[in-house]
Nucleic acid binder design. Structure first.
Length: 296
DNA sequence: AGTTGTCAAGCTAGT
DNA sequence: ACTAGCTTGACAACT
């Protein structure tokens, strides 16, 4: 079981997703920005390795404007060697990687333009992982998208468009249950239509479910992952005490986390902690896991 | 130096 | 009609 956190590390003193305004775009500006982001990504991965955190979500903003028409700069060639080195570091340390395109990526939109932009953005995400030469277990996670007034046809549109995606994208794409529209059972329906693996978000599941127990839900999601896809990926968060329902906790509640892990007993999975204090909570969780392991 | 309006992109639910 | 929320605030113009 690998433990990780998404995108931002507040200890290393840099971010791997610095950006700039479209209005001030230039290839020089972009190159500088990418160089800084890549260098920070290295630092974060080293920090993670040193702290037993082997699961990380690479921010979508690593290469700003990568899928925008303004970007004609050959960043993939220019930074090919850097991506390869980072990929080697990831593999040598047995790390797991995910990416999560932002809310504008909607495969099932009723607007064809939105779909086209979404596919470009997905290709960019796949390109980053391919440049790192990561295996098929490095995943791109997406929500189903909007309902557009009819959930069944929204699911069908996703399935149709998934089938037509380039292989490089399709082999990495996984779908995640969300907290108010598409539940685990909706995602499982999508899996039966397409074969797409289902990334299980435990917090979303607690907000939006069809009565499945936590353990049963984990088992159902786990069954959608083929061997080549790697172990089941899970997003984990807990409710901030006293805050509005759906608010992520500011720091990890270890007893809650231990209870979740016990629900997954005997199931191989990697867990990403969507908790506001990021690596701080992840380190606590990873320590809990390694102390619980016999022989450690 | 610190504050604040705005930033490529979409949709839903709550107010 | 407007805004918060979503995987993640930060850029850049202004005071």
């Amino acid at each position: 079981m690998r433990i990780g956190y998404p995108c931002i590390n507040r200890s290393v003193g840099c971010t791997a997703s610095t950006t700039f305004r479209l209005a001030s775009y230039s290839s020089v500006r972009l190159e500088t920005c990418i160089r800084n982001n890549i260098s920070c990504l290295r630092k974060i991965l080293q920090f993670n390795a040193g702290n037993g955190l082997l699961f990380f979500r690479i921010p979508s903003g690593l290469v700003p404007f990568a899928s925008h028409p303004i970007c004609t700069y050959g960043w993939a060639g220019r930074f090919a060697k850097d991506f390869r080195e980072i990929g080697r570091y990831i593999r040598e340390n047995n790390m797991r990687i995910s990416m999560h395109p932002d809310q504008f990526v909607l495969l099932n939109s009723t607007d064809e333009e939105v779909v086209l932009r979404s596919v470009s953005e997905l290709k960019y995400h796949a390109k980053v992982l391919d440049l790192m030469r990561l295996g098929r277990d490095a995943k791109i996670q997406l929500h189903v998208g909007g309902v557009y007034g009819d959930k069944e046809s929204a699911l069908e549109r996703f399935a149709e468009r998934y089938a037509r995606l380039p292989r490089q994208v399709r082999k990495r794409l996984v779908v995640e249950n969300d907290g108010h529209l598409f539940s685990l059972s909706d995602c499982l329906k999508l899996h039966s239509l397409t074969g797409i693996p289902v990334l299980f978000d435990s917090f979303h599941h607690s907000l939006n479910n069809n009565g499945e127990s936590m353990r049963n839900a984990i088992l159902l999601a786990e069954a959608t992952w083929a061997v080549q896809d790697g172990p089941l990926m899970c997003d984990y968060s807990s409710q901030q005490r006293g805050a509005k329902r759906g608010t992520h906790a500011s720091t990890i509640n270890l007893p809650d986390f231990a209870a979740f892990v016990s629900q997954a007993k005997g199931i191989e999975l990697d867990i990403m902690l969507e908790i506001k204090d990021k690596e701080k909570s992840a380190i606590k969780a990873a320590r809990l896991i390694s102390e619980a392991k016999p022989g450690n």
